[in-house]
Write a protein that binds this DNA or RNA. Structure first.
Lengths: 169, 169
DNA sequence: ACCCATTGATTGGCCGACCAAGGTAATCTG
DNA sequence: CAGATTACCTTGGTCGGCCAATCAATGGGT
């Protein structure tokens, strides 16, 4: 090292010098999550629940195990989250007649009523995050994020599959 | 709408159509965090603690309030995290002679010993995430993340400041 | 000097996330 | 068909995060 860096230059912790993009990604992801959390709070949703609800909006009554697979979460996480969502009326759960150990989950009408709000959160977040970025930069960012996702997919499992609804496709 | 979309096309929840980049960002951030978590577990660190330790490595004994400000976390989060880090010997805490309600925090030698491992996590993560990306793409990704961070900074406060160590600069 | 607002830190509660362990039902196997 | 294995879910524990309420110490106003 030819000489010590001048003092007072790094907002970034020096121990992360080996991963500048990773640190930037972690930072922006955190801010993004905070911004999302604020907006979800106004819908009376906790961060994380929006993904669950979106899954339920897209597919009808679903086995809980399929939600676990689809969201890539731990089974216990899904159990507890669904208990809370059920208790506040956003979700309905019942036994699966075809498999007595499985549980079928479904969004209630009240749960479905949140959809417009959540869509608004995503578009609002997109508009805020990408303000000042031209269509070109946006496409480039999407492409690069896709590449990183591909790189990480092997190690950190996929969190958005599309197991075809049986009978279709 | 001219006709329903063909079934079985969207790994992405349809309610997020208004924020494709935001959804991609959330996805890659989650995978990134999982990959980081795996590596930190081998160092016997929980995700989140690495940021705390990095702050402590860079600055010597720090007031807890400064850590809170610097990490952008809630005061209670920092209190509990430091209690655990202290209990397992990575951190030492003591009263501030200049302000009897403040607490001075410092990394122990054992805590400092984690630094190489954490640096390795960041470089390893960077290498994994950006595999296959040329220097050009990496720079572009860093630039775009910087822009997004700038956009989010107003709402989701800064999480990496550099209040100059008093006396220097 | 006194009172009061501000700052620093802690506690308790809640939620999302994980792991480990357990229980029940279905399925595979001999 | 009985026994072992696997799949599905639940419970209890821990940790990182937040909010609300609390306490102690500092500092400013009059």
């Amino acid at each position: 090292m030819p000489g010590p860096d001048p003092v007072c230059t790094e907002p970034t912790p020096s121990a992360a010098h080996g991963g500048p993009v990773s640190i930037a990604l972690a930072r922006v992801a955190r801010m993004h999550r905070i911004a999302a959390g604020r907006r979800l709070k106004e819908l009376e949703l906790y961060p994380g629940q929006e993904m669950m609800m979106m899954r339920l909006w897209d597919r009808g009554p679903v086995r809980q195990s399929e939600l676990i697979q689809s969201l890539g979460l731990d089974a216990s996480t899904v159990t507890k989250m669904l208990q809370r969502l059920e208790q506040c009326g956003h979700v309905r759960r019942g036994p699966d007649p075809a498999d007595r150990r499985a549980v079928l989950v479904e969004a209630t009408d009240e749960g479905r009523a949140l959809r417009a709000g959540v869509e608004g959160v995503w578009t609002d977040l997109e508009q805020l995050s990408l303000s000042g970025l031209g269509p070109e930069d946006r496409a480039e960012l999407a492409r690069l994020l896709g590449l990183v996702a591909e790189n990480l997919r092997e190690e950190a499992g996929e969190a958005g599959e599309c197991p075809p609804p049986p009978g279709v496709c």
